[in-house]
Structure formats: C-alpha cells, structure tokens
Simulated scan of single mutants.
Amino acid sequence: MTTTATRTRTEAAASRVPGAWGLGLHRGALEIRQFFRQREQVVFTFAFPVVFLFLFASIFRDKVGDTGVTASQLYVPSMLASGIMSTSFQSLGISIAVERDEKVLRRLRGTPMPPTAYFLGKIWLVLFTGILETAVLLLVGTTLYDVRLPSDAALWFDFAWIFVLGLTGCALLGIAISSVPRSAKSASSVVVLPFLVLQFISGVYILVDTIPGWMLNIGALFPLKWLCQGLRGVFLPDSAQVLEQAGSWEFGRIALVLAAWCVGGLVLCLLTFRWKDRRKG
C-alpha cells in the first residue's frame, strides 16, 4: 500500500510539472525581466529608431511628388519596419551568440528544460518588445508627423498579419545568424552590418523611388523591404503607392514573401543552430 501511495504521489507531482508551453511562458517572463534590468540596452533598443525617425523626418519634410504625403510621413512606417527587425533579428542574433559564447546555452541544454521552452521564451521577449517599440513609434508618428491611424478594420487586419509574419521571419533569421559569430565580441559586428545595409537598400533611410533598381532587387530577397512596403500600405494613402517599385502595395506578394521567410527561417534554424561553440565541439 505504501508503494502504491508513493507511486500515486509521484505521478500526481509529475502531472503538475509544466510542459514546454508553460515553461516557455516562465522563460519568457524571465527574459523580459532580464531585458529591462539592462538599462543601456533598453534605452538603445527603444530610442535608436525614434531618434533616427526624428532626424530624417525633420530634415526631409517636403511633399513627395503629387502623392499628397510628406517625406516625414513616409519615414514613419519605414522606421516601424526597422524597429520590428531591430527587436527581433538584431536582438536575437546578438543575444544568443553572447549566451552561446558564455556557455549559457550549454548549461541550459544540460537541464531537464525542453529546448522548445528556450525558444518560446525568446519569442515572448521579441513579441513584447516588438509591440512596445511599434506603439512608441506610432505615438511619435501620429503626434508629430500627422500620420493617420487606419479607420478601416481591413487595414488593421493587414497590419496584424504583416506584423506577425514580419516579426516571426526576422526572429527566425536572427536565431539562424546567431551561429555565425565566432565569439561574443564579434556578434555585434556580424549582425549589425547586414542589418544596416538592408536598411539602406530596403527603403528605410532612402526613399524607394531614389534607390537604384538593382539594389531594390537585392533588398527584395529579404523581409525588411516587404515589411516597409506593407506598413506604408497600411498607414499611407493609396496615392503614395506610385512611389513603390511595382507602383502598387502588392499585399499578396508581401504575404507570400514573409510567409516564405518564416518557413525558410525555420529551416535555417534547424540546420544551423548550435548549443555549443563550434570551436569547442
């Protein structure tokens, strides 16, 4: 009877152990707390796109052609897209590389925690910071640069799927690129350089109609260009779509490209992610 009672208690305790989803939630809460404890990182993450938006939107204020929108209004959705990629691709690419170099990943892999819970924690962190970053930039854009929030529910739906697909694709790409740096010291250089280049050839800092076609074609291979274009389609009037490379918002193509990056990014993660530094086997 004692053995039966002990077995029953053991089974009851095991049934109360949270699964990967529950552990992922706890891990996400821990990631968010750790993020906000690093004040310099918080300030840089949220202030960087806001400062750049203020600089570019203050310098370029004239109307763009016959579109009826100003250059500063064009910069708002573009910086929204940049902020989304910053909180996902750049943040994960650097932080995971640092954790690998400091052997944090190796220690976590040696615990009973399912690997899925670690990635769920990162996803919750990216989602939380991405939403907060977007809210801050929208507040600045609507109060200072006369960007109007959509009044149509369909446009809010477009915003939702563009945000989710873009954030997911960029986050998976960030996890994949985290395996490239050989050390924590080189992580920032390896991740920031391609992100900086993409911002110039994807229509973030330079208006699309002034970027050479071959550069736009290279930028079109990555999610940032489509994030920018999709968010411009949500927050700007239809008159502005003549500035796009194809002369339209192309929401259907945006959905296909971002969805393809979600699938392709997942494949890249499965093929390249490592828990240990490759120099140490």
Score class of each variant (00 low, 15 high):
142 T>R: 06
273 F>Y: 10
266 L>V: 04
200 F>R: 02
188 S>P: 02
221 L>C: 11
279 R>V: 03
209 D>S: 14
166 G>V: 04
182 R>T: 13
47 A>F: 13
126 V>D: 00
171 A>R: 04
196 L>W: 14
57 A>H: 05
11 E>N: 09
82 S>E: 03
59 I>S: 05
187 A>E: 03
125 L>M: 08
55 L>W: 02
107 R>A: 14
123 I>H: 05
117 A>M: 04
92 L>S: 13
93 G>D: 03
228 C>Q: 09
156 W>C: 07
168 T>F: 07
118 Y>V: 15
168 T>E: 05
254 I>G: 07
47 A>N: 05
13 A>E: 14
196 L>D: 07
251 F>L: 15
151 S>I: 07
89 F>E: 10
11 E>C: 00
206 I>A: 02
179 S>A: 15
157 F>N: 04
68 G>V: 05
261 W>A: 11
68 G>I: 08
277 D>V: 10
66 D>M: 10
25 L>W: 15
194 P>Y: 12
160 A>E: 04
140 V>L: 10
1 M>V: 07
132 L>I: 07
272 T>D: 07
45 T>P: 06
147 V>S: 09
161 W>E: 10
70 T>L: 07
25 L>R: 12
61 R>D: 11
211 I>L: 12
205 Y>P: 06
56 F>H: 03
214 W>S: 13
79 M>R: 01
266 L>Q: 05
77 P>L: 10
74 L>K: 03
96 I>G: 10
227 L>H: 03
99 E>D: 15
277 D>P: 02
131 I>K: 01
206 I>H: 00
135 A>F: 10
31 E>W: 01
116 T>Y: 04
65 G>R: 00
149 L>G: 06
152 D>L: 07
24 G>P: 09
136 V>K: 01
88 S>Q: 06
119 F>Y: 02
194 P>F: 11
67 T>S: 14
209 D>A: 11
15 S>A: 15
67 T>R: 00
53 L>A: 02
159 F>W: 12
163 F>K: 02
116 T>P: 01
124 W>M: 13
13 A>N: 09
30 L>I: 10
176 A>M: 04
172 L>Y: 10
93 G>I: 07
196 L>N: 14
181 P>R: 11
77 P>M: 09
165 L>Y: 04
5 A>E: 12
252 G>A: 14
78 S>I: 08
13 A>H: 08
146 D>E: 14
107 R>D: 12
120 L>P: 09
100 R>V: 10
269 C>E: 08
156 W>E: 05
116 T>A: 15
58 S>L: 06
42 V>Y: 08
110 G>F: 11
118 Y>H: 13
58 S>H: 10
197 V>K: 01
194 P>Q: 14
214 W>F: 15
279 R>E: 11
256 L>H: 01
91 S>I: 00
38 Q>L: 12
100 R>N: 08
241 Q>S: 14
53 L>D: 11
6 T>S: 11
29 A>L: 15
157 F>C: 03
2 T>P: 01
217 N>G: 02
21 W>P: 00
136 V>Q: 09
119 F>S: 08
41 Q>G: 09
125 L>P: 05
